[in-house]
Design a protein around this nucleic acid. Structure first.
Lengths: 216, 216
DNA sequence: GGCTGTCTCCCCCGTGCGGGGGAGACAAAA
DNA sequence: TTTTGTCTCCCCCGCACGGGGGAGACAGCC
């Protein structure tokens, strides 16, 4: 028989806490081990109780759900987080999923569905409310095939072109002449049919040649 | 009692088709209404049978799952698509979810889980296999608050700065003097602490001020 | 009335960059 | 062997751009 899932509930409304606890206690394999009324207290409770999963309300006084979730992620990354919000999908969801929050449900969720969601999250899956899912998936960029054939060296130069460095500085970094870099850049612009460095970088990003982080 | 869910199975391996059909027929509310051995035939079958959902293998001869899914999306957008693949997560998943494919499961999925997934997708949710979900969510960019306070006009100029147009051309489009555009650009670079136009655009993209789509 | 912020426009200057050439060294393919 | 591709380096030219300065018109706020 599997161990029961230890749950911590963090919400500033007592009725919500009690209601959730009541619903969840109906399930034999769920165990509500604690409640907290804001993020700060919840963070303490999570550290002491070490639950499997924390249900967190997004809007709370003193320390809101986002802040708490991010803090918990840092201190106890193994504890799963299920975010609860009202009916509207908050833009902060992007930060949350990007930060690795596993679950995001709206408060109008059916109890049975919530139980399913909790199980999914505890088992390492991610559960996002359909509306949230839709919004998040809308952010996905198609992964175009790199139709342009750049040489490895050119791709390397192109990555550098996304940096603040001038061609002279890039040349210094790569231990080649500035003319070489400029020559490569010329060919890259030619191949990519882009009018300038900025557009080339944007185009490269669109086709997935360059990611939106590594700044050299 | 709800109507049963009409399913079309598209896979080039007969054993897979038969196995799936057998498993799914065990569920009282699932009905396998047809099978097809490649995307082209599957597309025809889908148009004739009008199923609720199509289970499609990604790799197939003649017309693969991606091509078929995209075609079906265009012709019969109401028919849901559940993509099936081997154990590895294909990069094409980005294109698929971006195109609105609702489900993506690996073939090693538990039958019960597949049934759950089918129900979820038919009910308008998206179901992605945990590994796929992880990969897809990794693509999400955090939604930083625009910490820099740009005026509306400056944001407008900044959007134009992401275009191939020169300042002179932008000025023409906005019916102001080139000097005005250059002046705004100067202030934008100042505020954003960026050394040049290209970096400013990249920075703007990172904080979500600009999206990675069509240039002006 | 002042003060502040925004939008507009102007000047100058130096340089980074795009576009046009060309060329040598080397390796792999034909 | 010749040819092709890649990487390296060089020259010149003109323009776009970044950085410095200043200024007038207007709206809103105190």
């Amino acid at each position: 028989m599997p161990e029961s899932i230890r749950i911590l509930i963090v919400d500033d409304h007592a009725v919500v806490r009690k209601g959730l606890a009541m619903v969840l206690r109906l399930e034999s394999d769920l165990e509500v081990v604690g409640e907290a009324e804001n993020g700060r207290i919840g963070l303490e409770a999570a550290k002491n109780l070490n639950p499997d999963i924390v249900l967190v309300d997004l809007v709370m006084p003193e320390m809101d759900g986002q802040e708490m979730a991010l803090a918990l992620r840092k201190s106890n990354p193994k504890i799963k987080v299920m975010m609860l919000t009202g009916t509207e999908v908050d833009d902060r969801v992007f930060d949350l999923v990007a930060a690795g929050i596993e679950g995001y449900v709206l408060k109008n969720i059916e109890p049975g569905e919530l139980v399913r969601a909790i199980h999914a999250v505890v088992h390492g899956e991610a559960y996002l409310h359909p509306d949230v899912m839709k919004k998040v998936l809308g952010r996905i960029q198609p992964h175009h095939a790199p139709s342009i054939s750049l040489t490895p060296r050119e791709i390397e130069i192109l990555e550098w072109m996304a940096s603040p460095n001038t061609y002279k500085q890039i040349a210094g970094q790569l231990n080649v002449s500035e003319e070489t870099v400029r020559s490569h850049a010329k060919n890259i612009l030619e191949k990519m049919k882009q009018p300038n460095r900025a557009q080339a970088v944007l185009a490269a990003m669109r086709i997935g040649l360059i990611k939106l982080d590594e700044g050299k």
